[in-house]
Design a protein around this nucleic acid. Structure first.
Lengths: 119, 119
DNA sequence: AGTGAACTTAGACGGGTGTCAAAATAGAGG
DNA sequence: CCTCTATTTTGACACCCGTCTAAGTTCACT
């Protein structure tokens, strides 16, 4: 897959230190947008929380009230946002979190959270 | 498969510990969705980064390539998501971050980030 | 190769989003 | 009261999103 416009180059310019330059904002916004749907947020939660470090699609589809193609669509968006990775093994497809990206988002928000307190 | 429901009341059920119950996911997703636009993300960044702890709308509109009503629209969405508060003083309107909410989001992602490492 | 299981892609459809110009609202100050 | 400035609301419009069914793809196992 392209990953054409890579979200967030470099790492973690804090929301506090600087008003977040426009170019950087586009990549970060893309990741946040991917989390802006309850199903996608739950999917990421499942994937990030799983002890094996990965989850089979077959174990996710049954947990939601939507059809399988819809789950596939949401997983695709999470992939395109750069939040998860996937790998096919035999018939099954496994999804893994890309923790670096989650950390990036977390760091951005943590900085914003503390900005007013520290100064 | 893990049971998909859990109480997780109070604050900040970590993304790691539990697959994030559906009801909670809706509220968190709404906040992430509000951050899912470059202009809104930059607006929040400005507001959270400002030393005074608040920013006048009049100081924000000129920084973007969109008309004033569009900025107003985005600020409204940030408000409705519970991420910022606003107050009118005279002719001007000032926006403040609601840092508790930013912390909530940050905590959720931080937990996801560490899930695989800690155990 | 043929069948079946696990995903993904394609096409369609209703509802939501981001944008602007124009009009409305709220205060400050003559 | 009138007007000027700051900000929001309204109405319109093109485009994007989340969902489905139906069809396609990829792999395993006969």
């Amino acid at each position: 897959m392209p990953a054409a416009d890579s979200p967030a180059k470099g790492c973690c310019a804090p929301l506090e230190s600087v008003p977040l330059d426009p170019a950087h904002a586009v990549g970060m916004a893309k990741m946040f947008k991917a989390l802006g749907d309850p199903i996608r947020l739950r999917l990421l939660s499942l994937i990030a929380a799983h002890p094996d470090g990965e989850v089979c699609v077959c174990d996710m589809t049954d947990l939601f009230d939507v059809a399988a193609p819809t789950i596939s669509y949401h997983l695709k968006l999470l992939r395109e946002a750069g939040l998860v990775d996937h790998e096919r093994r035999g018939t099954w497809v496994y999804y893994r979190p890309i923790r670096e990206r989650l950390h990036q988002l977390s760091a951005l928000l943590a900085a914003a959270d503390l900005a007013g307190v520290s100064g």
